[in-house]
Amino acid sequence: MDIIENSPILEVRNLKKNYDKLSVLKDISFSAYAGSVISFIGSSGSGKSTLLRCCNLLEIPQAGEIIFKGEAVSWTNKTDSRQLSDKKQIIKFRTNLSMVFQSFNLWSHLSILDNVIEAPVTVLRKDRHIMRDVAYSLLEKVGIADKADAWPAQLSGGQQQRAAIARALAMEPDALLFDEPTSALDPELEQEVVKVIKDLASEGRTMLLVTHDMQLARDLSDRVYFLHQGIVEEEGHPDSLFGKPKSNRLKQFLSAAAS
């Protein structure tokens, strides 16, 4: 896929994150260019979710930079335990980088339609009536328009995840952050979500994708990062990364994933 612009939508430099003494991310850097799909793979506990959560500022990394469209996150200048210092900036980052969670996290007190409408109306101050139409067409796009008035708990996992994708799209974000969107799903439900994600990729959406699904990473990605023990152990184009893995760690990981 062509890289449309040469300045990245999201850039992460030398990110470090630890929980007390546990060092989860040691030194992570990557860039996500507009229209590209970047995948992160790695064994459980390698810090993939933590990395995505840092991008969305749900976690505060102890060191390193996060740069959205050329704008770096501003920190309080305390070096030992820095905090986010600009509330407007936090909202800007979060509204432009929409998360899709492993366990869907639809708001249980709202109907499917209201789940899609909620954030644009509350955060972006969009008009509720206009958003209704937008939400309907998004639900149509992910194939669950007939479930608009249902409650989240009445939907299958695959339907819930598709609703969650519609909710993320309703923000008109610059990039979508997927955290293992299919790993809570049964194999037969997985495919309906995979199809939606593939459609989004072919529309040229910028996506960060954390996944256990090697086939999906291979099919969609422009670049794949293999995380191991808090660092990027290997990165590259999916063909070379999956076709000719260099490091032993990655070889082991891929053969374990294949079996």
């Binding site: 909202i91 979060r94 708001w107 954030a119 923000m171």
Partner: peptide
């Protein structure tokens, strides 16, 4: 907590 955190992830303020 996942319910409130999802709000935060979408840019909700603490008040919202």
């Amino acid at each position: 907590k996942t319910q409130t955190e999802t709000g935060a992830a979408f840019g909700f303020t603490q008040k919202q």
